[in-house]
Write a protein that binds this DNA or RNA. Structure first.
Lengths: 252, 252
DNA sequence: TCAAAAGTGTTAACGATACACCCATGA
DNA sequence: TCATGGGTGTATCGTTAACACTTTTGA
């Protein structure tokens, strides 16, 4: 028994596809060892154990990369889940853990991270995704139509993470991780509307954003769109940091 | 090596004493094993390992009780600290861990909880505090005049927890854990001023609070105070829950 | 009668909301 | 010329912020 056996990380990756909000999940496929016949399948959040010699952040990044090929994104720590029975509430989980050679009654504490990304950037399989993880078949599942069957306490974790995201997105610059370099205010509005599940008045929304000094207009407009081309803006991280240091409020 | 060796909890207990904001810390006293001569002393946050058969919450409560005698308070999970070198950045820590028979290069992830309490309720030693922990000598240390020498990454944890408290106190009903059953608005104002480190205009502050439906006036006033006795109020948890469910904003 | 905190009202500036029409583009 | 999303102004309302004096009590 070693450090790796007791501490794990999970990643809740929210992906916005310019239409709806999704979450990234993998397939968990339980097969009969002899015949290969499928006993059950359900969905599972990317996650794995933390190595002895890595920070928990690095572990989260590594695990996400190994399972999905997603690289170079910001992961934010969200919460740690450590209920006694979190791995053995369902028969499926007990069976699964026994089969992969783990004790279902072993304690595992999981540190959960989350992120918000552009779902369209990732279509699986991603090239450099490690071979043996391809079977996990990463995919986007819409928040409004989630798979019913999930491993362990992952449905609970996901629900909590979603609430956290919805709150966080109002006070933190999370959407800029998702927006392209150059974006229109209309796009930004659509993103907020999707994530928060409510609509904003266009004029009021723009007024508000335009007052934020870190949303800076470019000398550039949209090209070859079949409507009036929109003014493009960028997010100035330096100005944001400064404003944040002094002010400490802001955002919607 | 077992679960207990890898996962720990720490508690950052903020105590308001109606004058200033304090944090609860213990003495860490390193003595020469033979002579008993003191090699160094510094301060440490209450913390210990999580037992195999307890939830992380319960572990935090147990640990706090064992070290300080504090019982029956709300502990809120704050963040998990898992940097590789968090236990061996200072010579003191390495020496200490070796002496108590632990490997300074062992990984330990710590789940940190925090709370806000009335410091005057606790004066040490508390009766039912376990015998062998008395040597840790729990005490309140003012936030504005902290001990310089702290164990491990505890100064860092404390700083982060303080920022978290200051933010959280604006959106969560944390101050009601601290306020007596029946309180005046003047007291509430003093508490917010102390925690946030800035002053409010009395009239504006009261107007704001009085609009909150869960702050309910009693048929009762202060007694035998040497000034005009204040109207007393109580915090109605039920109304609060309901308002929160619908509204999801509020507080200062 | 004094000290100490309680309690109170108004104004001005700002932010939030509600609402409807014209504009530029490519197909 | 049409469909599409971009872009704009104003009025109302509620919230915030600034400000000074009177009241009640016990000592």
């Amino acid at each position: 028994m070693d450090f790796q056996d007791f501490v794990s990380v999970n990643c809740v990756i929210f992906g916005y596809d310019f239409e709806k909000l999704n979450v990234l999940m993998l397939d968990r496929i339980m097969t009969e060892p002899a015949s290969g016949k499928i006993i059950f399948t359900d969905k599972i959040l990317p996650g794995s154990h933390v190595n002895f010699d890595e920070d928990i952040n690095s572990a989260a990044k590594r695990v996400l990369f190994e399972f999905t090929g997603i690289d170079n994104i910001e992961l934010h720590q969200f919460r740690t889940f450590g209920a006694l029975d979190r791995l053995n509430r369902q028969d499926r989980d007990v069976l699964w853990l026994r089969t992969i050679g783990q004790d279902p009654y072993q304690r595992v504490v999981s540190i959960v991270f989350y992120s918000l990304v552009d779902a369209n950037k990732y279509e699986w399989p991603i090239q450099h995704q490690k071979e043996h993880h391809q079977m996990y078949n990463p995919g986007w599942y819409p928040i409004n139509d989630l798979p019913k069957e999930m491993a362990y306490d992952h449905h609970f974790i996901l629900d909590e993470a979603l609430a956290f995201l919805r709150d966080g997105v109002k006070y933190n610059p999370l959407v800029f991780e998702l927006l392209p370099e150059k974006f229109s205010l209309g796009l930004m509005q659509k993103i907020y509307e999707t994530i928060l599940g409510r609509n904003f008045d266009k004029r009021n929304f723009r007024r508000k954003l335009l007052k934020m000094p870190f949303i800076v207009p470019l000398n550039e407009k949209q090209q070859s769109v079949l409507h009036k081309p929109a003014q493009l803006y960028y997010f100035d991280r330096k100005i944001y940091q400064q404003v944040r240091k002094n002010n400490y409020d802001l955002m919607l």
